[in-house]
Every structure is written in structure tokens, then in C-alpha cells.
């Protein structure tokens, strides 16, 4: 038993090299953009990048846990839209801002738990389950709103998207605080340890007497809550709850998580990597606009970078496994 735990630890052993490389690429890109355009290195623009990246960060943090546990959640974009719509309906129905936000977060938690329950109790592939829920929640948002965005909320609500806290704004600070919280949770808590173990060797974890169901549910619930927080930010920022909000956001956040060095096979996860990857993608998108490069190239470039990073990470981890233990595979 101890041995299998050791193994889990070894597989999940942190290795910060890919993250260092990401920082290096990020800085290189920032340097290039600063030289190429006088509009890049201004506080206004840097704040834009942080602001734009914050939504990706919030969603990708929850996604990091899910992917590190060996799962995937395709429903986050739709959950963001649904929880935003629920908050809007609650406010329009006369509820206070705080209560409405809580309702939205509860919707996120509930959808996440539902994901987790179907995946763990019925043992169905997470890809299919969350794909189904993605469409279900999107459809529900469209039905609730009748396809028409709900617009106009109290100041106390829009503050969450467009307010000011010193030179920064609530989404940026929310993303930063969540990042800190997630890092502590993943690296220092029992929950984080079990999350990685779920992805590394689920069977071993089960045999050591840990409730797989409980932790799987918690992981997906966390992801649902971060998706709802993303819904809060996007709804508050646009002062509109759109049934189509967060379109394709699930793919952006999965891309950021994988780019950040979290393994798609589970067992390995990095919060710092996710944060840097979100900033990297945010900077890339911003830089391409600042340089007036057409949107066609944006998608091409983002795809190329993700592919290169994933190939690099995979080659490296294979080398490592075969290098350290020639006979272990």
C-alpha cells in the first residue's frame, strides 16, 4: 500500500521546468511586442491583458483540478452562461445582488456535482457526460432567456465586472486570489493530493480506503463553481446575461490547462502553469490585435503554440520515464 502511494507521489512529483519555459516564452513575446509596437507596453494595454486573461484564469483553475484528476469538463462555458442567466433572472425577480450571486454559484456547484455524480456513480466517460450537459445547459439558457439577452443590472452587480479597485479591477483580483487558493489547495491539502492520485492511479487510491465518489464529485463541483464565477464576471462586465456567453470557453480553458503542463492523462497538475498559460494566450491574442494581424492568423498561431507545447511536454515526460526506470513500462 505504501509503495503504491510512493509511486503516486513520484508520478505527481512537481517539476517546474515546463513552467519556467512558459515564462520564458511569455517574456520573449512581451519583449518582441514591445519592440514591434509602441502601444503594447502601456499600462492601459497591460491592464487590458490582465482583465481579458482573468476570465480564462478563473475557468482554467477549476479545469486544472478536473484534468489533473484524469477527467475533463466540456460544460464550463455553458455553465457560465446558465449561471449568469440565473443571476440575471434572480435580480430581475427582485432579489438582492448578493443573494442572486449566491444562486448563480449554487447553480454552478449543482451542475458540477451532477457531472461528478454521473461520471463516478455510473462510471461513464467524462467526455461524453460533460458534452451532453454542455448542450443541455446551453439549451436551458436559451429557453430561459428566449434567445434574447437580459440586460441592465444594479451597480453593485456590474461592479464585479467593471468596477475599480485601485489600479486593478475585481475580475483581476478575483483571478489572483483564486489562483493563490487553488495553488494551496492542489499542492498542500489532502484534497489536492487525492485529486492528483485520482488521475495517477485511481485503483490504488480506492484500495487505500479513500472514497473515490466523494472526491470526484468535489473536483467537478469545484469546476462548476469556478465556471459560475466566470459567468459572474462575464455577465457583470457586459451588464448583460447572454444565453450564448462563454461560447467555446471550455476549449480555451482546456488549452490553457494543458499548455500549462497539466497532463491530459491526469496525475500531474500545475496551477502556476495554468496561470502563466492563460496570460500567455491573453498576451498573444492582444498582441495580434495590437499589430493589426487578421483574426485568421490568431487561431492558427494559438493552435500552433498549443500543439508545440503539448508535443514538447509529451516527448520530455516519455524521455524521463524511460530514462529513470528503464524497465518500469
Amino acid at each position: 500500500m505504501e509503495k503504491s502511494k510512493d509511486k503516486i507521489i513520484k508520478i505527481s512529483a512537481k517539476n517546474s521546468l515546463p513552467q519556467l519555459l512558459l515564462i520564458f516564452v511569455l517574456l520573449g513575446m512581451a519583449l518582441f511586442l514591445s519592440l514591434a509596437s509602441p502601444f503594447f507596453l502601456t499600462w492601459e494595454n497591460l491592464r487590458n491583458i490582465l482583465d481579458h486573461s482573468s476570465l480564462y484564469i478563473i475557468l482554467a483553475l477549476g479545469m486544472t483540478f478536473v484534468i489533473a484528476s484524469g477527467g475533463i469538463d466540456l460544460s464550463v462555458g455553458a455553465v457560465a452562461a446558465l449561471s449568469g442567466v440565473c443571476m440575471a433572472v434572480a435580480m430581475k425577480g427582485g432579489l438582492g445582488v448578493g443573494a442572486s450571486i449566491l444562486i448563480g454559484l449554487a447553480v454552478g456547484a449543482a451542475t458540477g456535482t451532477l457531472n461528478g455524480a454521473v461520471i463516478s456513480f455510473l462510471k461513464i466517460n467524462p467526455f461524453i457526460v460533460t458534452l451532453g450537459f454542455m448542450s443541455l445547459w446551453r439549451g436551458l439558457s436559451l429557453i430561459i432567456t428566449g434567445g434574447i439577452p437580459i440586460y441592465g443590472f444594479p451597480r453593485g452587480f456590474t461592479w464585479w465586472g467593471s468596477g475599480h479597485i485601485g489600479p486593478l479591477n475585481p475580475p483581476i483580483l478575483l483571478a489572483a486570489l483564486l489562483g493563490l487558493f487553488a495553488a494551496i489547495l492542489l499542492n498542500m491539502s489532502r484534497f489536492g493530493y487525492y485529486t492528483l492520485a485520482l488521475g495517477g492511479n485511481e485503483e490504488a487510491l480506492r484500495r487505500s480506503g479513500v472514497s473515490i465518489h466523494l472526491y470526484k464529485n468535489l473536483v467537478y463541483m469545484l469546476c462548476g463553481v469556478t465556471a459560475a464565477l466566470g459567468g459572474l464576471v462575464v455577465t457583470a462586465r457586459l451588464n448583460t446575461a447572454e444565453p450564448l456567453a462563454g461560447w467555446m470557453l471550455e476549449l480555451d480553458s482546456i488549452a490553457a490547462v494543458v499548455l500549462g503542463g497539466t497532463s491530459m492523462n491526469g496525475g500531474r497538475g500545475s496551477i502556476a502553469g495554468t496561470l502563466i498559460a492563460c496570460l500567455l494566450l491573453g498576451t498573444l491574442r492582444n498582441g495580434l490585435v495590437i499589430l493589426s494581424i487578421p483574426s485568421y492568423y490568431q487561431q492558427l498561431l494559438i493552435g500552433l503554440i498549443i500543439l508545440l507545447a503539448v508535443i514538447f511536454a509529451e516527448v520530455r515526460s516519455r524521455k524521463k520515464i524511460s530514462g529513470s526506470k528503464p524497465n518500469s513500462r
Binding site: T42, N45, L238, E242, L244, W247, R285, I290, S295, Q299
Partner: peptide
């Protein structure tokens, strides 16, 4: 400039904000 796809409201806003800079 343009948004990457027709439904991507958030990216379009981000593109506008970068243009304003």
C-alpha cells in the same frame, strides 16, 4: 479587425479594447 467567430462576443470586446489602446 474582426472577432474570430460570429458568436464570440467576448473576443470582439477584447479586440475593441486592444484597438482603443
Amino acid at each position: 479587425m474582426a472577432a474570430p467567430t460570429e458568436g464570440d462576443t467576448k473576443s470582439q470586446l477584447e479586440t475593441l479594447e486592444a484597438m482603443v489602446a
